[in-house]
Simulated scan of single mutants.
Amino acid sequence: MIAKISTDSFITEMPLIIDSKQEKALLAPFQAGRQLYNACLGEIMTRLELVGNSSAY
């Protein structure tokens, strides 16, 4: 196994100062992304269970 070379790095968090209109505009795509992710995850879990239960597997 090859060792991973790491470099020094840092993360900083800064508060996002927005008004309610901007918040609505940001929340809509995040909500859509969350729903899409959960729909895909549910489909994957269903298919995984079907594969596990199949006689060919």
Rank of each mutant, 00 (worst) to 15 (best):
L26P: 00
R34Y: 06
M45T: 14
L26F: 05
Q35D: 07
V51P: 03
E13A: 08
C40K: 15
L41W: 11
E23F: 08
L26E: 04
L36W: 11
K4T: 08
R47C: 14
E43P: 03
P29H: 01
D8T: 06
A28M: 08
S6K: 10
M45G: 02
I44C: 11
E49P: 06
Q35W: 00
E13V: 06
F10A: 06
S55I: 13
C40L: 15
I44L: 14
K24Q: 11
P15Q: 01
M1F: 02
F30D: 03
I11G: 00
I17N: 04
S20Y: 02
A25T: 02
S9N: 11
M45R: 15
Y57G: 02
L48Q: 14
T46S: 13
L27C: 01
I5R: 12
C40R: 13
C40Y: 10
A28K: 11
M14G: 02
I11T: 05
K21D: 11
M45H: 14
L48N: 14
L41G: 12
I18A: 07
S9C: 11
M14K: 12
Q22L: 02
S20C: 04
V51S: 10
L27Q: 03
I11L: 07
G42P: 00
T46N: 14
A3I: 03
S9H: 05
F10I: 01
I18P: 00
M1N: 13
E13T: 05
I11H: 04
E13W: 09
E23T: 05
Q31N: 02
Q22G: 05
